[in-house]
Design a protein around this nucleic acid. Structure first.
Lengths: 346, 346
DNA sequence: ATATTTTTCGTGTTCGGGCACGGAGGCTCT
DNA sequence: AGAGCCTCCGTGCCCGAACACGAAAAATAT
């Protein structure tokens, strides 16, 4: 039960702790014979270095970079950023620090700059919320070659050797969304409102959600006519016009779904034109929660972005501290269903 | 940006690090004047002790005791116990160890023994899932007087100076449960199945849930007749008989609710007598989840017992490491709604 | 004023490992 | 053989805090 130290090993091998240390860190300058002797004893005694002593002696603090889109308060990525604070707490005593690097989610150029900035800071690990497939892969190559571990949140990308992924399964979330919208009964018409700036570059999760949604409807509500409407999030006036035009043409539609976090943008219109609707959206932005509590929004499918960030950071920290072997894990997280009666303590 | 160490403080105060150390640990033998001088400088420089150095020098490991009911695999407390493992991970590098002490949830005597056993081990903190009001209070008195911090999970008790509480709001969970059972529409009849060994000693959360349930029904479904049925969890044969008798007498009842985690015990009967029912229960036991996926159970209200344990442990660990001032917090956690489409990744 | 106690403080060692430095021994080359 | 060079290894200090021990300073007693 006694802890075995580097000195014990030195004594037992008849070498000095300097030599043992060189062996432990593969720092060379050790004869084949001594190397073997040390390795044997280490294995025999099951030596494990004392983390505290090691970190104390080393002394520097490592930083984990968080690469996410710019975010104003109350938006999705703002919530995600709160996970950083949570993680900070537990990490500070381990001299691990986190730092955000934000990019414009509509500009690949800005993403590239953020990546460069991350590299300059020589981080010990990186958490990435990827929006640009190609650029992200290039970046990951670089991280890989520098031996910097990294994890994805939100969206998973094919990249060589990421450490972990935390997010919800996009396809299934669309499926679930449909189940909540219809509450099990077949419906006749539904409207998908797509609130996004760039029709061409829809985010991966949004597309997958729609696919899941469609499949549920095909299976459980086959006769349903599904329409869709594009809305520019930057232009509130146009929003009203678009909705107005739509409901003039199709007054019978009272099932509405939005596949990203921006359902709150159509809430003012809906409240100005009350009706008995079912409205389902995503994510627990405070604006969405408020609409949920007022009853304008029927249900929200929420992920826990703070948790995702927190866990991703944690997994990197583990890797950094313990230098455990890389062990890729995909952690699909739970999809929360929020209705007005369980939204309060969220 | 430089790290300030105990030596810096010693130098700046003109005292020695020994004295500074005495101040830091309130170990006395320091003159009023020196004490002040040190405290001032500490505040001014924002000194934070180096955890590594501290732990290295100290060397021993502290243990946090977890006091929960005995649990077979797949039961509620078994899930809770998994939170311990999660917490362990982050705590190991801090030389904090956790250890379970289990008691028979139907025997106050067994609880008392478990408490004694906890005390013998002289823990640095205790997480308590309280089932016996009086005995728990006695125990907490003792912990208090020994200066051992403790936290509650699941059920909150009035006790002097607990550090934190993690659980879901029981009343609201009953309210939510009713909303899920009725899916918003008024209903005519409902059945509460009470699966418990001892009618006299119903657990606090169960009673509160029923109250919340009743209030929802009064408000949203006032004409509803609510019946109830007692079932002994230890006697499967009697379960069938009881349900048989009930449905013979009241064949029209197709809304069923169970306020504890044991809805799975009536699932076999329900599946042998299929009907178009809505069934709502609590907690994500694997048996419950399976019934949910098969469609026998409509919805589950789940808490996250692992998280509760995890967080409670974490809060104690923070207290132990940083010796922060006691700061009581009640953390009501989110109530998860599970239906068949979001149960998979749970 | 001297002796004795108490209060207050400084010194020095320890924890386990990282790492710089330099020394001993063997090798090759003139 | 002496100079110059690797290869391999040991010594010793450092990281920042905990704590034992004993000494100086202050307070009290004789």
């Amino acid at each position: 039960m006694e802890k075995v130290t580097i000195n014990d090993i030195a004594r037992l091998t008849g070498l000095s702790k300097g030599t043992v240390d060189r062996v432990l860190h593969n720092r060379g300058e050790v004869s084949r014979k001594s190397y073997q002797k040390v390795m044997d004893i280490i294995k025999e005694l099951g030596y494990e270095p004392n983390l505290y002593a090691s970190l104390l002696a080393r002394g520097e603090q490592r930083t984990i970079a968080i690469l996410i889109p710019f975010h104003e308060t109350g938006t999705y990525w703002d919530i995600a950023a709160k996970g950083e604070a949570k993680a900070q707490n537990g990490l500070k005593p381990l001299s691990i620090v986190t730092r955000q690097f934000c990019y414009n989610q509509y500009s690949a150029e800005s993403f590239r700059e953020a990546c460069a900035s991350v590299l300059e800071n020589n981080p010990a690990g990186v958490v990435i919320a990827p929006m640009f497939q190609y650029e992200t892969q290039v970046f990951c190559q670089e991280l890989q070659s520098r031996g910097i571990p990294y994890s994805f949140i939100d969206t998973k990308l094919e990249a060589p050797g990421y450490l972990s992924f935390y997010g919800i399964p996009a396809y299934k979330s669309g499926y679930l969304c449909a189940a909540m919208l219809t509450s099990g009964e077949p419906i006749r018409e539904a409207l998908i409102v797509r609130i996004m700036r760039d029709k061409e570059r829809q985010s991966d999760p949004t597309v997958m959600r729609r696919a899941g949604f469609m499949d549920y409807m095909l299976e459980h509500s086959p006769g349903c006519t599904i329409r869709s409407l594009f809305i520019d999030p930057e232009d509130p006036a146009a929003t009203d016009d678009a909705l107005d035009a739509f409901f003039k043409e199709f007054p019978g539609v009272n099932h509405i779904v939005v596949f990203n976090s921006r359902v709150h943008l159509i809430v003012p219109y809906l409240e100005r034109h009350p009706a008995n609707r079912r409205v389902v959206g995503f994510d627990n932005l405070s604006a969405n929660l408020a609409a949920l509590k007022r009853g304008t929004v029927t249900a929200l499918i929420a992920q826990r972005p703070e948790e995702q960030v927190h866990m991703a950071i944690q997994s990197l920290a583990d890797k950094i501290i313990f230098q455990r072997m890389p062990e890729r894990t995909d952690n699909y997280m739970h999809m929360d269903i929020l209705i007005r009666y369980n939204a309060e303590d969220y």
